[in-house]
């Protein structure tokens, strides 16, 4: 379905061309191929005229794919059973909805200590190296979270009601199914996330009028996790050194790491930390800066792998005119 975007500073909706839709279909094609292929794809290079809206189109594709293909839900348990959970286990605690606030608190952290006094369950939780003690009512629930799940304290607007749309909206906002990590430049990418977004089928399904592009893409920042969903994550490649040690532990959960643009390719393609990840490089042919270095840095890593002949056809995906794709396994 056609996507329209609008800069929040003006009122004109612009329908993006079919190229955008084709890019948004790449994640599904890639995930299907990845599931059936052996050996797996390790490197993908996408040559684009400009990186504008390319990474975000791909993020939208991943978000949509995750929404339409929900992974099995993690089992939810009553808070009272927390006493049986081992110390150091990461859990995602969902607090009961506040009476006056249409929001619910979600907290992700590691268990330090649990005790029960009367009706209350006291949990000491270590979240981002800060320990807090909480008294939970029996109606609170928790689920076991993977090691890679970002830790934090989230206040999510909770849709109240029992309709299918409400359930979908809540699922959309809280879904845990990590897809792609985007390592990019903050400026333009950040600006794109602020666009307002319309895609009729999604809006209809969620029964909302519009979303921000950030909401639709379900993109959260790696070093500043704001939302309780865990679908797509982004961070600036320039600060890679500072967050790389933490990232390495979580890389395995992402289906692909997107290096967005020539500068990102040049800076971090050859980083040891990314060597075993599946990388999708976005190479800009329309920007003369760092073309040679960016491409050579990426291809320097890809040369250790085997090129996949006819990759575009094998994906069952049609690249937009002016965009080319190559894969290595």
């Amino acid at each position: 379905m056609t996507v329209s975007l609008r800069n929040s500073d003006d009122n004109k909706w612009v329908m993006v061309g079919t190229w955008f839709q084709q890019l948004a279909e790449l994640p599904s094609a890639f995930l299907d191929y990845q599931e059936s292929s052996n050996p797996k794809v390790k490197r993908i290079l996408l040559a684009v005229p400009s990186r504008s809206l390319v990474a975000t189109a791909i993020a939208w594709g991943f978000s949509k794919h995750a929404f339409e293909n929900p992974a099995s839900h993690s089992a939810s348990f009553p808070a009272a059973t927390l006493v049986d959970v081992a110390e150091g286990t990461k859990v995602r605690i969902v607090f009961p909805v506040h009476r006056t606030l249409p929001k619910r608190q979600i907290r992700v952290g590691k268990i330090v200590n649990v005790s029960v006094t009367g009706r209350l369950i006291y949990v000491e939780l270590m979240t981002n190296e800060s320990s807090t003690k909480w008294a939970l009512l029996p109606s609170a629930t928790y689920s076991l979270a993977s090691e890679a799940t970002p830790e934090g304290d989230y206040w999510e607007t909770l849709e109240v009601g029992s309709t299918k749309e409400v359930a979908k909206r809540n699922f959309f906002n809280f879904q845990q199914n990590p897809q792609a990590l985007f390592l990019t430049e903050a400026g333009a990418f950040f600006e794109e996330l602020r666009f307002q977004f319309r895609e009729p089928s999604l809006l209809e399904e969620l029964s909302v009028n519009e979303l921000s592009f950030e909401q639709a893409n379900r993109l959260d920042r790696f070093t500043d996790d704001k939302f309780s969903h865990f679908i797509n994550t982004w961070e600036t490649f320039k600060d890679f050194d500072s967050y790389a040690p933490g990232l390495v532990k979580q890389l395995g959960v992402f289906k692909v790491v997107v290096l967005d643009g020539n500068s990102a390719l040049d800076s971090i393609s050859a980083r040891e930390e990314l060597r075993h990840a599946t990388i999708l490089g976005i190479f800009e042919t329309g920007k003369k800066t760092l073309q040679d270095r960016g491409a050579k840095s990426f291809l320097g890593e890809a040369m250790y792998l085997n090129p996949i002949e006819g990759f575009e056809q094998l994906l069952g995906w049609k690249a937009p005119d002016g965009i080319r794709i190559w894969g290595w396994s």
Binding site: V14, V16, W19, P49, S50, S52, G286, P320, D321, I323
Partner: peptide
């Protein structure tokens, strides 16, 4: 930062 219509025009050219 960029005009969406110009991006569409680029892809039309391509």
């Amino acid at each position: 930062g960029f005009e969406l219509s110009s991006l569409n025009a680029k892809y039309r050219n391509l």
